[in-house]
Amino acid sequence: MSTIAAGVATTGHEKHVSDYIGAKVGMWLFLFTELLLFGGLFLVYSVYRAMYHTDFHTAAKELNVTLGAVNTIILLTSSLTMACSISATQRGNRKLSILLLVMTALFGIAFLVNKYFEWGAKFQHGIYPGSDQLGMRENGEILFYGLYYMMTGLHGLHVIVGVLLFSVVLLFLVKKKIHQENFVLIENSGLYWHLVDIIWIFLFPLFYLIT
């Protein structure tokens, strides 16, 4: 009977938090919905890429590979600091965990700043959805830039949400609500951040490296 008693104690309303594995299952399922959300855009991309092969190549030449590569490295590094921050919490090293999490958020902001300049340059050249300049181009190029803005935009939105999420996690860390015994929130935030990274891992070659 003893095992059941443990079950009773953990399924009540107050003790839900303690279902550590359940919380992670829920997070993974949420990540799948994110994957399929971007998946819809990847579908659009693949269809139009197949249809307008050459136009996509022409349009992609105008994207700045260096900026893209720098952003890739920034995001990869932020994933490293994120993973290490979780490890630090698990080891009970709160200060290191906080430091690493702040670094992760800063990398996220750096990514956004970089993106801002990249988009800004394109806007200056009159290349944005619905602009006259873009309207005069080949159909495939219009679609390429439509996809570029939609996909990097949706990805950027996820980066913003990630940074906001980190500030909440940071607060919890500082208030010692996340600690060695209870760290599923920071771990789930990490899972989210890594997914955002994975999406970028695919976006980078598909937009910047198809010249």
């Binding site: 799948f32 919905t33 994110e34 399929l36 819809g40 855009l41 959805p129 679609l143 996809l147």
Partner: peptide, 24 residues
């Protein structure tokens, strides 16, 4: 969980299409 996100992005694309004319 797996099918609904597709309609989600489709509906967003309709909205973007109407406001920005992306052309998809």
């Amino acid at each position: 969980v797996l099918a609904t996100p597709i309609i989600g992005i489709t509906l967003l694309l309709i909205i973007f299409e109407r406001f920005l004319g992306i052309g998809f």
